[in-house]
Nucleic acid binder design. Sequence first.
DNA 1: ATGTTCACG
DNA 2: ACGTACGTGAACATC
Length: 885
Amino acid sequence: MESKKLVLVDGNSIAFRAFYAMYTVLEKFKSPDGLHTNAIYAFNNMLDLILSKSHPTDMLVAFDAGKVTFRNQLYDDYKGNRLKTPDEFREQLPFIKQLLAARGIKTYELENYEADDIIGTIATRANKENYQTVIVTGDRDLTQLVNDNTTVAVTIKGVTDLEFYTPQHFQEKLGITPQQLIDLKGLMGDNSDNYPGVTKVGEKTALKLLKQYGSMENLYDHVEDMKASKLKEHLIQDREQAFLSKKLATIKTDAPIDLQISELTYEGIQTEPLKQFYQKMNFQSFLKKMTTGEEDTATTAEDNIKYIELNADTVNQLVSSKQPAVVVVEMVHDNYHTAPIIGLACGNDQGIFVSDNLDILQDKSLKNWLSDAQINKSVFDFKRTYVALNRQQISLAGVDFDALLASYLLDVNENSNDLGQLAQAYGYQNLTPDNQFYGTGAKLSIPPHSELLQHLAAKVGAIQFLQNKLPLQLQEHDQDQLFDDIELPLSKVLAEMEIAGITVSRTTLEQMEQDLDQRLRDLETTIYQYAGHEFNINSPQQLSTVLFEELGLKPIKKNKRGYSTSVDVLEKLQGQSPIIAEILNYRQVAKIQSTYVLGLMNSIAPDQKVHTRYQQTLTQTGRLSSVDPNLQNIPARDEGREIRKAFVPRHADWEIFSSDYSQIELRVLAHISGDQNMQQAFAENYDIHAHTAMRIFGLDNIDQVTPDMRRQAKATNFGIVYGISDYGLSQNIGISRKQAAEFIAAYFEQYPDVKNYMDQTVQKAREEGYVETIMHRRRYLPDIHSRNYHIRSFAERTAMNTPIQGSAADIIKIAMIDMQQKLKDEHLQATMLLQVHDELIFEAPKAEIPILEQLVPKIMDSAVKLDVPLKVESAHGPNWFDAKG
DNA sequence: ATGTTCACG
DNA sequence: ACGTACGTGAACATC
């Protein structure tokens, strides 16, 4: 007999997962009549996956019928802590049912029962008729139904990443049988369904008890024999509660369902209705898949785009128009300071003009057109385009839209930095992503002439498409100012800083290299002597063998591969063996040598400068990052600081000048929380850490604060900014967790509105799905809804930290734009070279230093108006090392 | 390709 | 009951 295969889907649970899996694109997925479609889309993806994987003969999607079920009669507060489901989700449910109808899949719901019970009942009936059953759900509770004929697929991440529970897998994972799951839930309760279990019994304890006693019934039969303990008391105390919880956890297998298995036959799609449905939802990719019958191989169609080859004959047609245009400068490699340009594409009302012959860039009329500020232009990645054209002595002007910057502001997760991917995410299907078009790594190659030109033309098409979508969304997010007045102007400032570059003295580095090399040899010799043999000190694995096996030291911390040998571990081992100090020293010196001395030398350009690239569309908070090389993590403390001596001005008789914001993040916190006590401390220019110490230690006078108190208060201030936890603080300053908790409580008592800010921000993230900076920079935090404590807590700390870190980033960005303008207006030779989060670094003729000492702090102070003053400190010297106050 | 360690704010 | 400080990039070893 041919075996029958049944798929049962937990409709509400999967739909809910689908909604949050695509939460960040909520506003991008809308049907023409304004309906949100993200959950419908993701749900459909899941259906495609499960159908292609399981090939069912029969299928049913079960839904919850309403809020109240028989479980509420057993226990009033069942699911009592559930938040109201968002409207954007609820409006999609009826359409998911429509989708299922068009796909020929039965749905079912039943008054008074949950979808679980429908599934449990049908699965049980199917077992009797020799079906192979697969249950798809986001709810682990359903794994109690697992048996030899029933597999449960639980979503891990999103809705297409599934974990398949068979009896074996279940056993391996939990060490009990699927049937024991209800005993487990009875003992430990369930937070998300809001029923209690036994006090102080969690998963670990419950599993231990079940492995010993087998079932709750047997456990309670023998509970009196247990030796006296808190656990025993709790078990006895909560007996009734535990059995109630077990009952709540038990899925019905005999619900009164008037549906025969024979009615569940999967009929396959109803072509016309499904097509119409996709059209109504604007699901272009699903439509395409239907009509072409192709699988999901990026079915782009670049040849839909018409273009004209750009050459001496056609260039006049392009530049004759003053109409808005799109400009694309193509380079395959990341580093646009050095990458060869392989193509150019320009589009306007005259058509799309494309060339892979770079001689055209020497054309006078084209150059003038590109640098004409009166002609509005759109690009993807202004900074990259500007720097590349600058290498051809062309000063690109008139750019008023950058699709890369816009997409980043709309959603900081959208940082693939690829136009094709971005355009596809917004529904434009005519551009192949670059990694696919050119290949990656060893397979990277440039396709032949005509294909390349077609690809460039498609890029112009994609930018034109995005230009019609993204500005409206920026407006909806209230991000016009952030885009027009901050990110786009900043992009040019950064380009100029990168092009300027900072001079690095090769001879200084070579000298350091010699010295460090000798020291490394000496340290190696000593370490080998202590160890008794040679080994690779850089290998954590080999080092841990030497320390923890051969020398018999006690491991402190584990990591995935074995025992940790990180600094904090080694510091705790100090004194137990003389080898430790030598290793710590070796690590430090080796780091300086390999990353900074040798690494930096490798990135010095022929002009003796290093030209970093600032990533403007990468971080989740709005900060910049710096790559190739990273000039934002040059050592600033201890011995490594010496490296800064190699960073020098480009002319003799010039100096390096540096200004930094003092405690900008705490000042931002004082501002946005509105906390009067903290604001007053800044208004009076108190030593903020000492002042905090005085408050949390309950002292009357700041003179009573000891250095150690100040140190602890300082760490607490930092902790607050990071979204504090008692554990984190205790680790950082080496106190007990309880003490740390007391610190935090005292802190919040002294700064009550800081506490309010933290609570409100987390609440806002839950309600709106995102948090914002003072300039409306936005970060979505879908994990704030996670059922996983760890993931959720992380999102909560992020919610607290991001507005603080991100607003500080906003402020220095404004200061940079103002500063660059001021340098120009005042005709100063001084050049802004680097930004290190709260610090700006310049080079300038000595004669201009007194001017900068006035000007830079003034501009930085007045970048924004906060309820607390900003404070800027400056220093200067013959190199970066000496330009430190 | 991924994890560990360590440099910065 | 559980396991964490927030944001980055580079070198190196190991998979």
